[in-house]
Design a protein around this nucleic acid. Structure first.
Length: 465
RNA sequence: UCCAGAAUAGCUCAAUGGUAGAGCAAUCGGCUGUUAACCGAUCGGUUGUAGGUUCGAGUCCUACUUCUGGAGCCA
């Protein structure tokens, strides 16, 4: 179909002014008076649309046009002119008009504000709203920004498997993948190994909860790598921040210690947010206006300031000396609760905070054990408003220490033979982190629920669409 | 999974235990430049489901379902 993207006209009005062009898109609003009809046309090429002006005296299709409603797919040919009211804005004086697909009266979207809860029930149509148009545009820009950041720094983009057999990384509940008859239960007393030997992979399998372990093997060959792909958690958590399927960015860097990792994480956050601010100004202005006043200023400030690096031990001291009555008592060795994280990042500093060197007991087996033999070289990045957005660590590269830790946790060493081999052959210090892509989108857009930053969110009890 | 709250027209919301309403949408008409256009009329309901209390329940009670907010778990 020969037509022009609306974005081109919006971006270069003077060049197209006076030209006869054909446009395709969907009606956002239709206003008709006697003899003249206005249709706001949006084709998705830009956040904004363009106004079609259909004058009865110059367009034979006026009657057809004035009958159209919100949502109709239209094709119009006409001349680019300056808007009657604002010469900076182009509009189209239509000479011929065609309806590609009508939107009958039961079309659920109206030219008014809908709640996000309602739009979730029509997720297949919600991309046609300003909010989701802007969201998916930003989601795309953010993805590209992430690739750009790592590519410019010489990282290799790797694809770690989605199907995996390792299920005790401690990251979360795993979705089971099987071709066995789902109705057939495992007989009492039968071992997993025996039961799953007839399964597709000949062992227990699931969807990945993290590409980290696999990523480490590539980092020990390619040096600097990152993954950017889907992750699955079967956690029974029902919150605005948890999805069963989400995208994760997991860089893994050889010859990097914790402080190198923190430098990388801070540079990445600043770089990708700057990119989005530069590339999606209209979309960001929309979220600032309708969802989170001051959002753009907040992000601009964020990319200019230094993030805080705070020892876990120091964080505990601050919390204990705060005199605030927390629901969960604070003592060295406990994990930081949401209320603690919020106090630190929102009340004490009001900026992003890397908390570092957590007690080994509350962290994963693979984290680098510090010389104090109590803590590990781990870090969480806490953001005001959203909480933890990055979790990472230097990895334990000493074979004996790693084996000792796995024994303490009653882990099966055989399951990790290849992971341990990385420490056996040419081991080296290395570090990595995981960033929840959707959580970053929440922060950047000011949207409050993870169900509204993915096309078709997968959450507990919800697999519609 | 736990705690709290909510569910009324297509959407957003009203309605002392006593005749279920409004705005928007839709439909029809009017209006020569509108910007979520405007003006007039019309249409629109098993008040989430199932029980119970009561002369009478949208309203009170019980259970269930779904959603929302918070917490846990986590990214």
């Amino acid at each position: 179909m020969k037509h022009i993207d609306i974005v081109k006209i919006l971006k270069d009005k003077d060049h197209f002014s006076g030209q006869q062009l054909t446009l395709c898109g969907w009606a956002r609003t239709v206003r008709s008076s006697k003899g003249i009809c206005f249709i706001e046309l949006n084709d998705g090429s830009a956040f904004r649309g363009i106004q079609l002006v259909i004058d009865e005296s110059t367009c034979p299709d006026y009657a057809l046009a004035s009958k159209q409603g919100v949502g109709a797919a239209l094709k119009a040919t006409g001349t680019v002119v300056s808007s009657y009211k604002n010469p900076e804005i182009p509009e189209i004086n239509v000479s011929s008009f065609e309806v590609l697909g009508e939107a009958p009266k039961d079309y659920p979207l109206q030219k008014k504000r809908h709640t996000l809860e309602f739009l979730r029930t029509i997720a297949h149509l919600r991309a046609r709203t300003n909010t989701f148009n802007a969201m998916f545009r930003i989601r795309s820009a953010l993805s590209i920004a992430i690739h750009r950041f790592f590519q410019e720094r010489g990282f290799t983009y790797v694809h770690t498997p989605i199907l995996t057999g390792s299920d005790c990384e401690g990251a979360g509940e795993m979705f089971r993948v099987t071709t066995l008859d789902p109705c057939k239960a495992k007989p009492a007393g039968m071992s997993d190994a025996e039961f799953y030997k007839d399964d597709f992979f000949g062992c227990k399998a699931g969807l990945t909860v993290s590409g980290q372990l696999e990523g480490e093997t590539l980092a020990m060959a390619l040096g600097k790598i990152y993954t950017f792909g889907p992750t699955f958690r079967a956690e029974n958590s029902n919150t605005a921040r948890h999805a069963a399927e989400f995208w994760q960015i997991e860089p893994e860097v050889a010859f990097a210690e914790l402080e190198d990792l923190i430098e990388l994480a801070e540079a990445m956050i600043k770089s990708i947010i700057s990119d989005v601010l530069d590339n999606c100004p209209e979309e960001m202005a929309f979220f600032d206006k309708h969802y989170d006043n001051g959002l753009v200023d907040k992000l601009r400030t964020l990319v200019q300031q230094d993030f805080v690096v705070l020892e876990y031990t120091e964080a505990i001291r601050i919390l204990q000396e705060s005199k605030v009555q927390f629901d969960y008592p604070v003592q060295w060795g406990c994990d930081l609760q949401t209320e603690h994280e919020r106090y630190i990042t929102e009340k004490v500093y009001n900026k992003p905070v890397f908390v570092i060197n957590y007690p080994a007991k509350i962290k994963s087996f693979y984290m680098k054990q510090n010389s104090d033999s109590k803590t590990v070289a781990a870090t969480d990045l806490l953001l005001p408003g959203v909480g933890e957005i990055i979790g990472g660590s230097q990895r334990e590269d000493n074979l004996e220490k790693l084996e000792r830790r796995m024994k303490e946790l009653n882990m099966e060493e055989e399951d990790y033979w290849w992971y341990l081999d990385l420490r056996r052959f040419g081991t080296a210090p290395h570090s990595g982190f995981g960033l929840g892509f959707e959580r970053l989108l929440l922060y950047i857009t000011g949207i409050g629920n993870i169900r509204d930053v993915a096309i078709f969110p997968r959450t507990k009890g919800n697999l519609q669409f």
